[in-house]
């Protein structure tokens, strides 16, 4: 769990445009998170799981495979959601004025590590933050 926290914190600390990252189980429980300010991690985890699941169903229906990245652009920021295997999803909240490709690159670099650490957490029993 400490390693997972470190990976997420590092992602936030090294990228000033990232304001928060939340790792949620596919059924909407928070596993770990890192944030520059307060975040309702329980509700955010549930929403991220819903988004990830809906995106998968949407892309399956039009036969374009599994989503690699879900992007929500809103008035004052962006939210990216990535599936981490079939059992979790990662939400990344950023400032609005960012280079989206760069975020994707940064997240892609750490996704395998997150998946590996998550496997340990899920097989060792779920812990919540």
């Amino acid at each position: 769990m400490d390693r997972l926290k470190a990976i997420l914190q590092d992602l936030v600390e090294r990228s000033s445009e990232i304001t928060a990252v939340v790792l949620a189980t596919a059924d909407g429980f928070p596993v770990e998170y890192a944030s520059r300010s307060g975040i309702d991690v329980d509700r955010q985890a549930a929403v991220i799981a819903s988004l990830a699941s809906l995106a998968s169903r949407s892309t399956e229906m039009v036969d374009i495979g599994q989503p690699e990245e879900i992007l929500v652009t809103s008035q004052r920021g962006r939210m990216f959601v990535y599936r981490v295997g079939s059992r979790a999803a990662l939400g990344v909240i950023t400032a609005k004025d960012i280079t989206t490709g760069l975020i994707l690159l940064k997240v892609r670099q750490v996704l395998p590590d997150i998946a590996e650490e998550l496997e340990k957490v899920l097989t060792g029993g779920r812990e919540t933050v």
Binding site: A26, F29, A46, S50, S53, L54, R57, R87, R126
Partner: peptide
């Protein structure tokens, strides 16, 4: 039917649960 069943990480008496609709 559109389903959003995902693997449950806690014991809720079944293996999957609806997470959106």
């Amino acid at each position: 039917v559109v389903e959003t069943e995902e693997v449950s990480s806690v014991d809720i008496g079944k293996s999957t649960t609806t997470v959106a609709l």
